[in-house]
Simulated assay, not measured.
Amino acid sequence: MSDSFHARLAQLQALGRSPEALATAEALAAELARQGQPLRAITVCRVLQQFEPAHLSTPRLLADLYAKPDAAAPGAPALPRVPLFSLLPREPFMALLGVLEPRSYQPGQSLIVEGEPGRSSFVLVEGRVDVVRKLDGGETRTLSSLGEGEFFGEIALVSESPRLASVVATQPVVALELHRTKVERVSFRHSVVGETVQAFYRERLLANVLRSHPVFASLAPEQREALAPIFERRTVEAGRVIIAQGQKGDGLYLLLQGQCTPVLRRHDGQETAFSPLREGDVFGEISLLLGQPASATVRADTPCQVLRMGREPFEQYLASQPKVRAALMRVGTERLLQHSKVLASGRAVHEGDQRV
């Protein structure tokens, strides 16, 4: 991390409400914003607003530079876009900026703890963190390392389900935290914020699955980008069967929101439930791969939002790829082995998975 920025931020916070501190913070935020460092500028802006809540000139400057350009305005400035925020028009941009909370962490401190209810998401301003998940045997695995500009924990913007992994600082970290309840309050006044957050979450989760899941990881980035629009969004009522054991699968599913449970029905009529599927889990690939009836039933425990890729595009865009075909065979074999052992707990953990 840049020690000069971290030290300067700490100095500003120590100076408090003095006129010198306010003037220095305003000048620093403007300088960073015009240099194309929006996250640092936003962090300084929020420190400034903590001391002077009525301060508006810096948020207005940031919105002018980084909010979604007005369709009637001339060409947008040649500055980097800020994920999520630059999708918003000027006023909603300023409203969402106003609920961000600057946070600092030292190496070894946890920003997110696996198993705790998810209530907020983060974006890294500086430093690095590891995404760490516990395995069935109790040991832990580092799935990925995230750096400046990375978002994580966005599942918490749409669901209070337990965290799927821990996030631990490996360097001194400055982050911006965004609480779901505050986003909901902003969305009540600016509906475009809620719509944009939902779309942002959906795209991030799908991109994570396409990047980390063994079925898709062998694809080139441009191939994964071409796949994303093929998934269609569906709403599933609680209690509805999405995939029925014994019937031919109609598609591959990605669970966006809610919870489903796979159930295996034995020949003697007894049923065994697998561990529940939650946000970001993929199912339905075995039937597509093998061209055989589904090996288990998947039923929605709660109202769910899913992304679905139908059989035809699945075969057209995936099965024709040799590397993808091999990955499908590997994943399908693993799933069938799980079914044969009738596992009632445990989840697939893939390298590069950033779901928290």
Score class of each variant (00 low, 15 high):
Phe5Arg: 06
Phe5Asn: 09
Gln11Gly: 06
Leu15Trp: 15
Ala29Phe: 09
Ala33Leu: 13
Val44Lys: 04
Gln50Val: 02
Pro53Leu: 12
His55Ile: 05
Pro69Met: 00
Ala71Leu: 02
Ala72Leu: 07
Ala72Met: 01
Ser86Val: 01
Leu100Trp: 12
Pro102Asn: 08
Ser104Val: 09
Leu111Ile: 10
Gly147Ser: 14
Glu148Met: 12
Glu148Gln: 15
Phe151Ile: 10
Ile155Cys: 02
Leu157Trp: 11
Leu157Met: 13
Ser161Tyr: 00
Ser161Ile: 03
Ser166Lys: 03
Ala169Glu: 07
Val174Tyr: 06
Ala175Lys: 06
Arg180Met: 03
Arg185Cys: 02
Arg185His: 10
Val186Arg: 03
Gly194Thr: 09
Thr196Glu: 07
Val197Trp: 12
Glu203Ile: 09
Ala207Gly: 12
Leu210Glu: 10
Ala217Val: 15
Ala220Trp: 06
Gln223Thr: 11
Ile230Ser: 08
Glu232Lys: 05
Thr235Asn: 10
Gln247Gly: 00
Gly249Trp: 01
Gln257Phe: 00
Gln259Leu: 05
Pro262Leu: 03
Arg265His: 07
Asp281Phe: 02
Gly284Tyr: 05
Glu285Gly: 01
Ser287Glu: 05
Pro303Ser: 04
Pro313Met: 08
Phe314Thr: 11
Gln316Val: 04
Leu318Cys: 05
Ala319Phe: 04
Arg325Cys: 01
Gly332Val: 04
Gly332Ala: 03
Gly332Lys: 08
Leu337Asp: 02
Ser340Val: 00
Leu343Asp: 08
Gly346Leu: 12
Arg347Asp: 12
